[in-house]
Amino acid sequence: MQVAVLGASGKGGSEITKELAARGHTVVGISRHPDAIPDLPGVQRKAGDASKPDELARLIKGVDAVISAVHFDIPSATLLGAVKQAGVNRLLVMGGAASLKGADGVMLYDSPHFPEEIKPIVKPAITFLDELREEQEVDWTFFSPAMVIFEGERKGPGSFELGGDELVTDGDGNSKISYADYAIAMVDELEQHNHSRQRFTAAYP
């Protein structure tokens, strides 16, 4: 496929770009810092600002899918507007974990243990997901990572477990995944299309 990755120079976006290129997909990597996008065969590095829908629509026109790894200070309406303007039907979003539910069925954001100082940072991701769930035209997927996502080794396929709206944890109650393994699950979803208009998550069991 030809896939546009928004925020391709960031921690998540760069790993997703690497995984796509390794599997033979053509990548249009878009960032305000294009020189920081992985320089790999099959990767086109382009300067662009996802907060400007007309500009973004021009950059992504003709791709088969868009994967967004940008921060949630860009509203869903802006991103969806650009995708629709470009005529792209598939949107995958690198989401947040705060909207996942714990074992008690309570959203992590609403848990008494959730740090108050982080709430203003993660709330836009929750709003973004709520708005995606109202979207009827674009085929979207929202991929929440584990509670802790970190720069670390690529353990590879089979090292993580997928989930839906509930946090995936290991035997000690920890929830974590590396950006590299997160990228595997993201590209798996692109190729297998198992979560159309759904949210899913992944973590090491």
Rank of each mutant, 00 (worst) to 15 (best):
Q198H: 06
F143E: 00
G164K: 13
A47W: 15
G12W: 04
E15S: 10
Q192V: 01
L6V: 10
V5N: 02
W140A: 04
Y179K: 03
D35Q: 15
G42M: 12
S99Q: 14
G158P: 04
D188E: 13
Q85P: 00
A8P: 06
A21I: 09
K11L: 15
E161H: 08
L40Y: 03
D188A: 03
L40E: 07
G96C: 06
G102M: 10
P157H: 01
D181H: 02
K18Y: 14
R58Y: 05
S68Q: 07
G13A: 11
S68N: 05
L162G: 00
K46C: 13
E161T: 15
S51Q: 10
G164S: 10
A103I: 06
G95V: 03
P75L: 08
F142W: 14
S196W: 01
Q44K: 13
I37L: 10
H113C: 00
V5R: 07
S31P: 09
D165P: 01
D172L: 13
G81Y: 03
G105H: 03
G12S: 15
D49E: 12
S76E: 10
P34Y: 04
R197K: 15
D104F: 08
G24W: 09
T169A: 11
A97L: 00
W140D: 04
M186I: 11
L132M: 08
G48R: 03
P157I: 01
I60E: 02
P145I: 05
A47K: 15
I177H: 00
A183S: 04
V3P: 07
A8C: 09
A50E: 10
G158F: 12
Y179W: 10
G152D: 15
A50N: 08
S99Y: 13
H25S: 08
V168E: 00
M94V: 10
E134C: 00
D130P: 00
A65R: 11
E15D: 12
T169G: 08
N89I: 01
P115Q: 07
G95L: 02
G164N: 13
D170M: 07
T169K: 11
A22N: 09
D49L: 12
V3N: 11
S68V: 05
D64L: 04
A203T: 00
I149Q: 06
L91G: 06
N174C: 02
D49V: 12
A50H: 07
K18G: 12
G13I: 13
H113N: 12
H71G: 10
